[in-house]
């Protein structure tokens, strides 16, 4: 199968007063219509990898890659207009916290309709119907009422479902989910994941699932990339995690306490400077 997304030697760095900070340092992977998890601590460069693919890297950052290709389009050389037309319609992104990632002064419905009408020439009536259908697809009951609500009037779980609806309504082929459940209550995390899982499967989308939670990612994805200090330290099939070779991955796995065993002392995650080299 020809990969949908090819990333080769991606680098993102930020010039600051005290020097260049390299957030992503040579990340390479390919992605078909599958689920890829990217795992790492905060600051490991996983989010910046996702944003670089989206084209949402801040303007002052430097970005380079020997290849950054989405379905035949070279993302690095593509004009801003082309990249913009890809965003939302073919590549979409779900952000962490709906409390901040939804526009507080715009009704949920309008925000969903906005995505649709940016990419497709549809009338108001039809756009509204499709937005309501989409809200129903993310299992929001009483979608017609939620359509007119503002973000502050819904719960976090419902907000994140609205976010998913907003990002998926134009039918993207690739979805980047950046910590989509970390800000939610534990009880609704699984609901949202289940909905996401179902939609990705139904629509045959490719998914990049960015998270700090290795267990969650491995249960949800086909393949896992482990990042540390801007680099990939290990790429492994999700089912194969038990055989992870890299000590950092093993460390991440061992952090989890297991019921019924007395582990004393609890292992501490090891961070060796040579892994970052």
């Amino acid at each position: 199968m020809k990969p949908m997304l090819t990333v080769d030697d991606l680098r993102v760095s930020f010039p600051t007063r005290t020097g260049l900070i390299e957030a992503v340092r040579g990340v390479s992977f390919t992605l078909g219509r599958e689920r890829l998890g990217i795992v790492g601590e905060s600051g490991s460069g996983k989010s910046q990898t996702g944003r670089a693919i989206m084209g949402l890297t801040p303007a002052h950052a430097r970005i380079s890659a020997s290849k950054l290709n989405f379905d035949g389009t070279d993302l690095l050389t593509a004009p801003a207009k082309v990249r913009r037309s890809l965003r939302g319609s073919r590549i979409a992104m779900i952000l962490q916290d709906p409390k901040y990632s939804l526009n507080p002064v715009m009704s949920i419905g309008r925000q969903i309709v906005e995505t649709l009408r940016t990419h497709e020439n549809v009338g108001k009536r039809e756009a509204r119907d499709r937005a309501i259908a989409m809200l129903e697809a993310v299992q929001i009951r009483d979608a017609g009422r939620v359509f007119d609500l503002h973000p502050h009037e819904v719960s976090g779980g419902m907000g994140q479902r609205a976010m998913i609806a907003m990002m998926l309504i134009a039918g993207p082929e690739l979805l980047i989910a950046d910590e989509p459940t970390s800000a939610l209550d534990v009880t609704v995390q699984l609901d949202v994941l289940r909905i996401l899982d179902k939609l990705v499967a139904e629509r045959g989308m490719g998914l990049i699932f960015i998270s700090h939670d290795l267990r969650l990612v491995s249960s949800f994805c086909d393949r896992v990339i482990v990042m540390y200090a801007g680099r990939i330290v290990e790429e492994i099939a999700a089912g194969d995690l038990a055989n992870a070779k890299h000590p950092y991955t093993q460390g991440l796995l061992n952090c989890m306490p297991t019921l019924g065993t007395d582990r004393h002392p609890l292992p501490v995650l090891d961070r060796k400077p040579e892994w970052a080299a």
Partner: peptide, 28 residues
């Protein structure tokens, strides 16, 4: 704010992001 990142991720034009999303919030 994050909702500006989200608006970009939706593929909106810069002018719409600035004048509709950001300014509408700044207007308050």
């Amino acid at each position: 704010q994050e909702y500006i990142v989200a608006a970009r991720a939706k593929g909106l034009s810069e002018s719409r992001i600035i004048w509709v999303h950001a300014l509408r919030n700044a207007a308050v």
